[in-house]
Design a protein around this nucleic acid. Sequence first.
DNA 1: CGTAATTCCTATCATTTCGATAGGAATTAT
DNA 2: ATAATTCCTATCGAAATGATAGGAATTACG
Lengths: 134, 134
Amino acid sequence: MIISTRGRYALRIMAALATRTESASLREIAEGEQIPFKYAESIVRSLVKANLVESKRGKAGGYLLTRAPEEYPLSEVLHAAEESLAATDCTGGKEAACPNAATCPSLPVWRALDETVWEFLSRYTLVDLMPQKD
Amino acid sequence: MIISTRGRYALRIMAALATRTESASLREIAEGEQIPFKYAESIVRSLVKANLVESKRGKAGGYLLTRAPEEYPLSEVLHAAEESLAATDCTGGKEAACPNAATCPSLPVWRALDETVWEFLSRYTLVDLMPQKD
DNA sequence: CGTAATTCCTATCATTTCGATAGGAATTAT
DNA sequence: ATAATTCCTATCGAAATGATAGGAATTACG
């Protein structure tokens, strides 16, 4: 699965944040989106680490986007939330480098596929996931 | 993972068959490709069911392609071997149809992504995976 | 006919991945 | 002080996935 639940949750959280101007608490967002709060926490921390959202700690704290919604390509959000967006293990970084990489005729195909997917996901932004855009 | 080990094994088996004119026994193919024989068996049965290869039973039996190598798009082989090529669960067939499908703003994106991936994989054939094509 | 090599079929195991949960420390507005 | 929040680490449970086991059915060939 190239895009897992985790990644899709991330997109929904980001889209929800995009409707706010003030910082919003995750509890509220998670409830609104029907996402388990604790799971949402772990996802948002990935987003913070990737500098996609800003956090404000303490009471009345919360999260806030750092850019305009149209400046968040889906590729970037998913990349921050997911382990990997690679279409195969061969290009996923893990796997300690396949020993046949040098001669494998498939590898260039997988690389090109990853590139195609990345490009596709870069053509959409958070704005495309916000229902109220009519 | 959109393309799993199972799918990549399928491609390698098909590419190996593509180098033969006579029917070849799976034991031989699997050994040559370093694929566990029993696992290879289960993969090949999927390929037979999808009419991508022909089988000959009994002693001196084996498997044989039914078309020329350039007439096997990777999309078709992978589709036969894998559970699903969908990029998300949302478009994967299972999941008993998401209740929000009608209004979900992401769904059209996932559909378009699946279409893009399918089209990409249809631009390559077994020939592109055969080392000796120079 | 009998044997050996093969495809076919079903069931199960083992490992990894992934979604989710638990408990609590650190921070901060009021 | 208190309450609400973000932050951190560890773990659980279920599902997916790669792999294995054992044997039935079929067929070439001596």
